[in-house]
Simulated scan of single mutants.
Amino acid sequence: MLREKCERMEVKILDLSVQPDHIHLFVSAPPRYAPSQLINAFKGYTSRYLKEEYPHLKKLTGNESLWTDTYYVGTAGTVSAETIRHYIEECQD
């Protein structure tokens, strides 16, 4: 789902790690997108898709939603892309 959404938005996934309780996503995005726009697009798209695919998820409300309102965004300005990829790969173990 994330790959599909990124392709539509012309965002390139550089690395992705899915954990039981969070996701590490390293992307290269056009400057027209603020980080908050990207996060909202990813969360909104995956939430809608999963709720359509699994109707019982539509009953989730409040604290039971698929995604929390929180997220962390960092930039690769001070570290190399390779360092970030390595960090994401290490989190998969």
Rank of each mutant, 00 (worst) to 15 (best):
residue 13 I to Q: 02
residue 54 Y to A: 13
residue 62 G to Q: 00
residue 15 D to P: 05
residue 61 T to C: 08
residue 23 I to E: 03
residue 65 S to I: 06
residue 76 A to V: 12
residue 69 D to H: 09
residue 7 E to F: 09
residue 43 K to A: 00
residue 77 G to H: 03
residue 18 V to G: 08
residue 32 R to L: 12
residue 73 V to Q: 08
residue 80 S to H: 03
residue 15 D to T: 09
residue 13 I to D: 02
residue 20 P to A: 04
residue 22 H to R: 09
residue 78 T to Y: 10
residue 54 Y to V: 14
residue 63 N to E: 11
residue 52 E to N: 13
residue 38 L to C: 03
residue 41 A to T: 04
residue 12 K to A: 05
residue 76 A to I: 08
residue 8 R to K: 14
residue 86 H to G: 11
residue 5 K to Q: 05
residue 51 K to S: 07
residue 70 T to V: 14
residue 67 W to M: 02
residue 12 K to W: 01
residue 49 Y to V: 15
residue 20 P to H: 03
residue 84 I to N: 04
residue 86 H to F: 10
residue 80 S to K: 07
residue 90 E to T: 11
residue 55 P to A: 03
residue 5 K to M: 05
residue 30 P to G: 04
residue 17 S to M: 14
residue 54 Y to S: 12
residue 51 K to E: 05
residue 71 Y to W: 03
residue 53 E to Q: 14
residue 24 H to D: 00
residue 42 F to Y: 06
residue 2 L to K: 10
residue 59 K to Q: 13
residue 88 I to T: 04
residue 60 L to F: 05
residue 4 E to T: 14
residue 75 T to K: 06
residue 23 I to D: 04
residue 89 E to G: 07
residue 20 P to R: 05
residue 47 S to N: 03
residue 58 K to H: 03
residue 6 C to Q: 00
residue 11 V to G: 01
residue 75 T to I: 08
residue 42 F to W: 04
residue 59 K to H: 11
residue 9 M to F: 00
residue 73 V to Y: 07
residue 90 E to N: 11
residue 17 S to A: 15
residue 4 E to V: 13
residue 44 G to F: 00
residue 7 E to G: 07
residue 47 S to A: 10
residue 61 T to E: 10
residue 16 L to E: 01
